[in-house]
Each structure stands twice: as structure tokens, then as C-alpha cells.
Amino acid sequence: MSVVPAGIGTADEPADVTPATGDGGPGSGAPRRQRARGRTAPVGGRTASVALWVYAAFALVPLLLMLSSSFRSNGDLISNPLGAPWPLSFDAYEEAWTAGNFATYFGNSLLVTLGAVVLSTTVATMASYALARGRSRIFRWLESLFLSGLMLPIHLAILPIFYLFDGVGLVDSRLGLALLYGASGVPFSIFVLTTFFRQLPEELEEAATLDGASAWQTFSRIMVPLVRPALATVAVFRFVPIWNDFLFPLVLLRDDAKYTLPVGLTQFFGENATNYAAVFAGLVITTLPLIALFLVATRQIVAGLTAGMSK
């Protein structure tokens, strides 16, 4: 894997840059424009367009089916699996949310995920700033130590984590889970943020120091606001895997009042496997925050997905 810090800023670049090279530009003459158009014509023409949209439907229909099924009654679902969700029924949601304890699971997931994201983003921002600016050799060494964590399959360390938690009373604790996720997010966050801090001109800090700002003031008042886009990318991108993680809560939580959504969902599915409508509602409840997040932060998620791609 190329862990070359090509910079997360470049992640979006290909998409933004290619259109610009495509059009001949307003000043170019007709023949040149003609050639430019022929060069950038989409491959495959209309047929390919249809195929691409059909594939988009294939990606989306199962999710839409999940949504529509959750608004139907169970009897209706069994008699006609492909029917329309009309009239809308909210019974399944009521059942899942209260009787199925999804309200509790939802709150737990939110607490653990937000706690972990805030924690790892905060400590990683501070560390990244020092790693980007520190001149001593020890910072180079520390940076590679952190980056080695990008490749570590942390789930394989579940046994030592379990006994570590057991020793300090963090088993069956949401705090323990948040600390663990916070720690596991440090390498990715540092990876992205150091690249960003390095792109900022050093004159900014020199000016701040001349004006009498302390290191902390320079960091918090000047540097952090400048890397805000990267902070958003890191936070949003870390949110998804933590929200979805299954193994750690499965092993580390006991009391079902502390379950996060994936584990609560598993319990609910095991006990209500034939109450299809309620299960569909549970699936939607588990997924909805991520879809909402995706709609407001597509850019950050896409940037996170392509982070570290060396061009």
C-alpha cells in the first residue's frame, strides 16, 4: 500500500482538475474546440450511460427496499414482499424503538462514537502540529511509529485488550469503548493532519511569536482554524467505522443497556427473526445517521476514501 502522504487535498483533485483540461476554454478557436470535444467524449456513449444508471439502481434498490419495507406491517410484508408501503405504517418503528430497545442502543452508539471521534481528533491535531513542525529527529521517529498503526489489524488484539480492560474495570463500559476507538483512530488522523500542517507557511508562526503569542496560543488560535477542512474529513471519516464496528462491543459489553446498535441489532434479530417489519425498522435506524452524515459531508467521505492515494 502506498502510504505516501500525497496529501488528502489531492484526493478530490482529479475530479476537479480533469473537467478544466477538457474544455478548450473560451478563447480557443473553433477547430481546437472540435478536437477538444472529440478527445473528452465519454467512452461508450449512450449505451454506457444506461448501463451506469442501471448499476446505480442495483446499488440502491436493496437499500430502498429496506426503507420501504420498514414502513409496512408484518402481515402485509409476508403476503406481498414487493408491495408498496401504502398507507405508511409506523408500527414497526414504534416496536423497534421502544420494545426493541433501539432508543437505548442509538444513544449508546452516539455517545461512544462522538466521544471517540472528539478524543482522537483532539489528541491527533496536537500531535500532528508538533510532528509537522518539530525539527528534532525524535519527531520523525514518532511519526513513523504512529503511521505503523495504519497497517495494524487492531481487532486481532482483542484478547489482550479484554484483559487490560478487565484489570482496570473498563469491561462492560462505554467509556472503555470510546477510549479504544479514540486510540485506534490516532494513526489515520495523524496521517491526514500532518500533511495539512506541513502545507501551512511557517511565517504565520514566526509572526505570531513576534507578536508575543505562546506556542499553545499560536496552535489553537492560528493553526487549528486553518486546518478546519482536514479536521472535518478526519472526524467524518472516523465516524463511519466506529459507528459500524461489531467485534469490540460484542466482546467488551455485557449489559444490554450498554449495547451499541450493531450488537443490539444482532440480539434483536435473534429474538425477532420473523417479525420482518420491525427488523427492517431496526436496520434503518442503525443506518440513518450515516446516510444523513453522508448527505451533508459527501466531500469529506470521498476525500477520506482516497486519502493517501499517490498519484
Binding site: 496536537m126 508538533a130 510532528l131 518539530g134 498503526g149 487490560l164 477510549l179 490516532v186 506556542a215 496552535f219
Partner: peptide, 16 residues
């Protein structure tokens, strides 16, 4: 610099 790195290092060291 080391002060800035310490919280991340402690968290990463203990839990990862």
C-alpha cells in the same frame, strides 16, 4: 513539541 505529542502517544501506546 513533545508535550503536544504526549496525549496521542499515551492513548495510542496503551490501547493499541
Amino acid at each position: 513539541g513533545l508535550l503536544f505529542v504526549t496525549p496521542a502517544l499515551a492513548l495510542f501506546g496503551v490501547f493499541v
